[in-house]
């Protein structure tokens, strides 16, 4: 199911199945957000991901930051070898 373009009725049914009876305004709010994001979401889904090559650990912000190249002499960063990054 593509949840980015749900009808009002489906949103209401899905929410009700989780014990959340929604008002018309709340349903409209969900649809409004989905409409605003629709183009971006389509772009997100269009990016090709390799089965192996791009399967990195998601969102490990700490590791990425700690692994950043140190600042070199004169305050300038050490050049990065991007092979395999």
């Amino acid at each position: 199911m593509d949840r980015s373009a749900l009808s009002a009725e489906t949103i209401r049914e899905l929410a009700a199945s989780r014990g959340l009876p929604l008002t018309a305004d709340q349903v409209a709010g969900v649809q409004g957000f989905q409409r605003a994001m629709a183009g971006d979401l389509a772009r997100l889904r269009s990016v090709p991901l390799d089965f192996v090559g791009d399967l990195r650990i998601p969102a490990d912000a700490t590791a990425w930051l700690e692994g950043f190249p140190e600042i070199g002499p004169g305050g300038h960063p050490v050049p990065v070898d991007r092979e395999g990054v």
């Binding site: 949840r3 749900l6 949103i11 899905l14 929410a15 989780r18 959340l20 929604l22 709340q26 709010g29 969900v30 957000f33 989905q34």
Partner: peptide
Amino acid sequence: EYLLTSSF
């Protein structure tokens, strides 16, 4: 509204 949107 955001909590609701997050569930979708």
